[in-house]
């Protein structure tokens, strides 16, 4: 039987906090990539040219149907054999970003479909270019309503960052299990703490998203 050791907790907490910074960094960078790439997929999938829309749809489908862990291995172990060597962190951020772009693409698609056809038609009637129509008319209407949904995927991505430990990124789980745990054979405290950290942060961010969403909805109704 192993008993909970508070001294051990306090001693290892600074290490975990440092690791949390890595986790948050990976989340932020990953989301940046997912948010941009997802928009690209969504717009490409709506393209009238099938040579564009079909491959985009296929790639998104493929990315979403295969495990993130395997994709991370692919980036970290296979890319060097193709002459591209990535640091663990870079592979991790790209993996997270690309994987979650397949989810954000769906979110953007819903947003784009929510913009009435009349908006496109009005822009055409004003002789705006396709690019201007998209950028100045459609996207400003399509994106705000889906921001909460994007926020939810940000939280989901945050919870998948532990997978980066499998490619040696020194984030929370790696520190808890492979550093603290492996050195002291005490897994209970560090792994429990990591669980608590994830729980608290994701509950907080979920609550924040709900709050912001409610505020926006109110404002939109007021308008």
């Amino acid at each position: 039987m192993n008993h909970w050791d508070w001294h051990f907790v306090w001693r290892t907490l600074p290490q975990l906090v440092d690791a949390l910074c890595v986790t948050l960094q990976a989340t932020a960078l990953g989301m940046l990539l997912a948010a941009t790439l997802g928009l690209f997929w969504a717009v490409a999938r709506r393209s009238a040219a099938r040579l564009v829309s079909w491959p985009a749809a296929a790639v998104v489908e493929f990315i979403r149907s295969t495990p993130l862990l395997v994709q991370l291995y692919f980036l970290y172990y296979v890319f060097p054999s193709l002459g591209v060597t990535l640091s663990a962190m870079a592979a991790g951020v790209i993996g997270l970003g690309v994987h979650y772009s397949s989810y954000t693409a769906e979110v953007y698609r819903a947003g784009l479909e929510g913009v009435p056809r009349g908006q496109w038609e009005a822009a055409t009637a004003l002789n705006l270019s396709k690019w201007d129509t998209l950028r100045r008319v459609v996207l400003p209407q399509a994106i705000p309503p889906v921001l909460p949904a994007l926020g939810n995927y940000l939280v989901a991505m945050f919870k998948e960052t532990p997978l980066l430990s499998a490619i040696t990124v020194v984030e929370l789980v790696h520190v808890a299990k492979d550093e603290i745990g492996a050195e002291t054979f005490k897994y209970l405290e560090p792994l429990t703490l990591v669980g608590v950290i994830f729980l608290v942060l994701s509950l907080l961010s979920a609550a924040m998203i709900r709050y912001v969403e409610a505020k926006w909805t109110l404002r939109r109704i007021a308008v």
């Binding site: 532990p162 789980v173 994830f198 509950l203």
Partner: peptide
């Protein structure tokens, strides 16, 4: 839902 699958 709040804790990560790998952590669990």
């Amino acid at each position: 839902r709040g804790t990560s699958a790998l952590v669990q």
